[in-house]
Design a protein around this nucleic acid. Structure first.
Length: 557
RNA sequence: GCCUCUGUAGCUCAAUGGAUAGAGCCGCGGACUUCUAAGCCGUUGAUGUAGGUUCGAUUCCUACCGGAGGCACCA
């Protein structure tokens, strides 16, 4: 039934006849970048030629002779140094096309059927700015969550927020000194920057901030508690507004105030693993090829390290059914996670086994790295606002009903696409001008194509032309690309790489737009129903693909 | 100093060890009395340097040069 599987098995058989044993799974079958090379290509002849002592092309010829006919394959060619290229039959491609037409969940894979996975991402800190770095974590994390969900997993979305620690004390100190109202989250960033600078440069301020920190841990100062509680709520509400715009909602919120005592307890109850050193409790990473880190400082306060241990323990206590605990964060913290994971392996190995850290690159400004300590940040809200304003200029001229809503959807698409178009492990140089661009290789381009396909299909149906796949129609590039979608989704889910989806959608949209410019879809010919079917299949594929990326798909633009 | 990541076109990014290294932006040129012009077509232009492994290297290894991040009481 599955053509790719059929090809694999046929190749295994052919190799067997030549005295070479290879499992079907180990045979690589890839989509050639150039469609002139067919729908699938394999390099088995190149790989095994040496083993048999033959020239690769001769080897390929022999394999092809043994292959015989394969269900769904119209043509087999040998090309280049010895590639074997498979061109699918019109019928095989039409079957995919039809699936795209009738299946709501077209493209869904079963990489992780019914498994429960927790994805932790975004992780902003109350009392600090929600900046474009958090936007990046949120965008990548949400997309990974959806990728797994679309692959059959039950996903628990988690957000871990640092509501306790020196950074909070810095912000509180700043709020007090600057006389900021705890009800206005807008100024928390400024307060934090002031506090953080003072903490570093002014010994008196440092002492005051450390005292605030201790009091907050102990909750021993009622006036401070009120300020803290109000500010915390204000901060969290501000975050929630952004999540609403971004289309994320979390199933569980973890806080450092919860994980601190748990983590501290883990450290204290394992004195052999976390020995005392210079008044602090540390983990000697050198013994494991890593570096030493402090888990409880000399004042008895658990650090981020201990809290992280507590967090993972808490996750597993609350959700024992998980198979995977994915954590999406910036890559500045990779070494930290290596140490913590090792420490967890020694204390709770079954939890450590599930822990997967997915680091992503940093969002940098053309001027360099952002720093919330100096206040040199672009906040998520201001960026979204600017983008929406830029989008609105276009939107008002268009057919959209709710221009406010559409402007925002276009803004979200623009920023998310910029983040998801590249391998997430790399840094992104954030260019304001570029992200404001709504053309070309961009989120709005995909949205526009989606809206366009919807409009054409709608118009066709209105004129009484139904979508109907013609099994014998000559396959176009668009149809060949549609066939690839499920495999692309599967690959992206396995590798946790959303950008594979982005790249694919761009090529699909581009192929469609190109086709659209050449062909009249709605006409009076007998081919019209098939062309409408192709358009509808593109529509469905873009819809599902955009959903995975967490990019809204407006019906009209 | 040690560790990790990274270097592809003027810019921002692609390319499970494979075929002629792909897009978009910018620039220049073009088509259209047509279903959404946020669109389409054409065009210039690139693998940091030096070795090695391989039938084949942007990809793997070594060295060097450049960039980013991390390395004890921050997160």
């Amino acid at each position: 039934m599955d053509t790719a599987q059929g090809i694999r098995e046929a190749i295994t058989g052919a190799l067997g006849q030549l005295g070479i044993s290879a499992a079907a799974e180990t045979i690589t079958l890839e989509f050639p970048a150039d469609m002139a090379h067919g729908d699938y290509a394999t390099n088995v002849a190149l790989v095994f030629a040496k083993q048999v002592g033959m020239a690769p092309r001769d080897m390929a010829t022999m394999i092809v002779e043994k292959l015989g006919t394969i269900d769904g394959v119209a043509r087999i060619d040998i090309a280049g140094p010895g590639f074997i290229n498979f061109t699918l039959s019109s019928q095989a491609l039409a079957i995919s096309l039809n699936e795209a037409l009738i299946q709501d969940a077209w493209g869904a894979s079963d990489v992780c059927p019914d498994e429960t996975v927790m994805v932790e991402y975004t992780d902003p800190n109350p009392f600090k700015a929600f900046h474009i770095g958090h936007l990046m974590s949120n965008t990548i994390g949400e997309s990974i969550a959806r990728l797994l969900q679309f692959s059959g997993a039950k996903v628990i979305r988690a957000n871990y927020q640092g509501d306790l620690g020196v950074h909070v004390a810095c912000a509180i100190w700043g709020i007090q000194k600057l006389g900021i109202h705890p009800e206005s989250a807008d100024e928390f960033g400024t307060a934090y920057a002031a506090g953080a600078t003072a903490y570093k440069e002014d010994p008196v301020a440092k002492k005051e901030i450390d005292e605030i920190n201790t009091k907050l841990y102990e909750r021993s100062d009622p006036a401070l508690n009120i300020l803290y509680d109000t500010g915390r709520t204000t901060s969290l509400e501000a975050f929630e507004r952004i999540y609403g715009i971004l289309g994320t909602h979390f199933d569980h919120y973890f806080f450092e105030s919860q994980t601190a005592p748990i983590g501290k307890n883990i450290v204290i109850t394992h004195p052999d693993i976390f020995p005392e050193s210079e008044g602090a409790r540390v983990f000697k990473g050198e013994e494991h090829g890593l570096h030493t880190r402090v888990f409880i400082n000399a004042k008895g306060i658990p650090t981020y390290e201990a809290k992280e241990l507590g967090l993972e323990k808490l996750k597993k206590d609350l959700y024992p059914e998980t198979k995977l605990l994915i954590i999406v964060t910036g890559n500045e913290v990779v070494d930290f996670f290596r140490v913590v994971k090792r420490a967890l392996e020694l204390t709770y190995p079954h939890i450590a086994d599930e822990m997967v850290h997915v680091p992503h690159g940093m969002m940098k400004l053309p001027t360099g790295k952002m720093s919330s300590r100096t206040g040199d940040v672009i906040t998520g809200e201001s960026l979204l606002r600017e983008l929406a304003a830029a989008a609105k200029v276009r939107v008002t001229e268009s057919r959209a009903g709710d221009t406010e809503k559409l402007s925002q959807e276009v803004a979200v698409a623009a920023i998310k696409y910029q983040i998801l178009k590249q391998d997430s492990s790399k840094d992104i140089v954030f260019d304001r001008e570029r992200s404001l661009s709504l053309e070309g290789d961009s989120g709005p381009y995909l949205q526009y194509t989606y809206a366009r396909t919807g409009a054409v299909v709608g118009k066709a149906h209105m004129q009484g032309i139904e979508s109907r796949v013609d099994m014998n129609a000559e396959p176009t590039e668009v149809v060949r690309l549609i066939h690839r979608f499920p495999a692309v989704v599967e690959q992206a889910a396995r590798d946790l790489k959303p950008h594979l989806i982005t790249q694919y959608l761009l090529s699909l949209a581009s192929a469609f737009n190109s086709w659209y410019a050449q062909v009249q879809i709605i006409d009076t010919s007998e081919h019209a129903p098939h062309k409408v079917a192709v358009t509808a299949a593109v529509n469905r594929t873009l819809k599902n693909g955009l959903w995975i990326l967490g990019i809204p798909a407006p019906e009209k633009m």
